[in-house]
């Protein structure tokens, strides 16, 4: 009557937290500018430029609101090669995660360099944003490519 013990049943199980972030005035400008294929940074009182912009000065806590447009080209300050991308990573072929310092910015941020091979990556190399055909206002609206192969 009762079935003999068999192998355990398995099933795919997806757990998803459907977070929706309110961006606030500074990051809203930043992401809106990305949709227009422009890079917006914020200037601190000492004149240095934070990219991506922050709402508050990391040292003093003062509110920041001096948004300025900077270049979408910059320099690779550090990088790591991803030879076998995983499913949720931004590209389906090998690429580099890199700390990029855009021209005009004093800080770096982590992003993607779509380089042909590991050998074409080097610290100090020039990269430029390559925008998607359709932008939505997201960090995935662009990836970086070596300037020579833009």
């Amino acid at each position: 009557m009762c079935p003999e013990p068999e192998a355990a049943l398995t099933a795919p199980h997806s757990l998803e937290y459907t977070y929706k972030r309110s961006l606030g005035p500074i990051l809203s400008q930043f992401f809106t500018a990305l949709r227009d294929r422009r890079m917006l940074a914020v200037r601190r009182s000492d004149g240095s430029v934070l990219m991506p912009p922050k709402e508050y000065d990391p040292d003093t806590g003062a509110s920041l609101d001096g948004m300025i447009e900077i270049s979408s080209e910059g320099v690779v300050r550090s990088w790591s090669w991803v030879s076998k991308p995983r499913r949720q990573q931004p590209l389906d072929h090998a690429f580099a995660y890199a700390l990029i310092q855009l021209d005009g910015a004093d800080t770096t941020f982590l992003h993607v360099v779509d380089a042909v091979e590991e050998g074409s990556m080097s610290t100090g190399m020039r990269v430029a944003a390559r925008w998607k055909a359709e932008t939505t206002g997201s960090m995935t609206d662009f990836v970086f490519v070596p300037v020579s192969s833009k």
């Binding site: 997806s14 998803e16 937290y17 459907t18 977070y19 309110s22 961006l23 997201s138």
Partner: peptide, 11 residues
Amino acid sequence: VTLLRVPVSLD
């Protein structure tokens, strides 16, 4: 752009 969807999914 005032909202960002950032789903965290675990498969």
